[in-house]
Amino acid sequence: MTRELKINGKTMVVEAEEGTPLLWVIRDELKMTGTKFGCGVAACGACTVHVDGQPMRSCQTYVEDVEGAEITTIEAMSGDRVGAAIQQAWTELDVVQCGYCQSGQIMSAAGLLAENPKPSADEIDAYMWGNACRCATYQRIRAGVQRAAEILEG
């Protein structure tokens, strides 16, 4: 059935049955492929998007539950103050390896910094726990979040 979704500030019309994960609507219907599929069971964080500012696993978020909500994906992060700071930090520290988890890492990091502008290493670990990186870029992610916090502080 036809639904309206608000993604990155734009209203988009999609065809999706009830029970369809938001992930597949974004990737297959809207062809926005920055949001990744890693596990489908909310165990890796590769599919993280923001729903009304909160990081959510889009693989376990059903399309009918987010109609009318503000959905934000990695594609909008360059235009976001926190997102841009994270991207700058990620560039300075060369955080990425294969890169496949990094959209999700950045979306989670943005969620963290929005609620805690100066997280400690332990707070980063606790918040980012669900974002797996098989390339194990973890220490750079930790340093990247702290660097982004510094950039945001100005």
Binding site: T33, G34, K36, I74, G99, Y100
Partner: peptide
Amino acid sequence: DTPSKIDGSGLFAM
């Protein structure tokens, strides 16, 4: 390869 891996534009096989 950093730029395309932090803004969602990098093209993976998936």
